[in-house]
Amino acid sequence: MGMNCIVYMGEKDVERQAPNVQRMLMLGATVVPVTSGSRTLKDATNEAIRHWINHPESYYLIGSVVGPHPYPKIVAHFQSVIARETEQQLLEKTGYNIPSKVIACVGGGSNAAGAFYTFYDFPPVELIAVEAAGHGIHSGKSAATSVLGTPGVLHGSLTLLMQDEDGQVTEPHSISAGLDYPGIGPLHAHTISEGRVSAISVTDEEALAAALECSRLEGIIPALESAHALAALKHIDLKPEEGVVVCLSGRGDKDMNTYQQQLVV
């Protein structure tokens, strides 16, 4: 289409996800490392919005379900392919008509929005969002927004936000680049507050252990984000006859650096 693509990415995430950056460069994108604030997703979003203000002829896009309407709706719509494929394949592969539980990790929450999409209005399906507890929910190094967050406005939407008493946004922490956002998509804030979705959180350590276990058992190296969803299985009571779906939202290729540093294998 002859359209240029500029990707704003926190400097810290550029380092953590170097293979993803290489891919984007190969595909022809310009990648701009963002050095302000915590140098992660929140700051990249600020810079992308500033670019859009400065260049109104450009199109602002975001990969997560955060920000002003209609962005969360657009992203959730496209991600809903996850739920639709789940419905089809579950029956084919397992014989279950519906899952008893759908489990997905949540940073901003795009894969969770997609994985839950067609099940929101179907109460028998339990929906579980897994947040990054980082070093532990109350360690000061966490991204568990549904526990630590209060209603606030950032990036043009009202949602749950990690902030101090003066309304300054606090810096989240997670070992995974996709989960350390100080808010969650407004859709998730709503469905968690209403009780339709339950939120649990797992630590960096638990996620790393789950990634290793999945690799050894299944021969699949999951993304660090998705490893949080897998780690949640240990926190949930499961019955042998249940059909449980865990959304493995990404491959771990991009996280090999972190795995190499963190895991003694």
Partner: peptide, 9 residues
């Protein structure tokens, strides 16, 4: 200013 500090106040 921005809305959030005002809302928290």
């Amino acid at each position: 200013g921005y809305l959030n500090p005002v809302l928290q106040y």
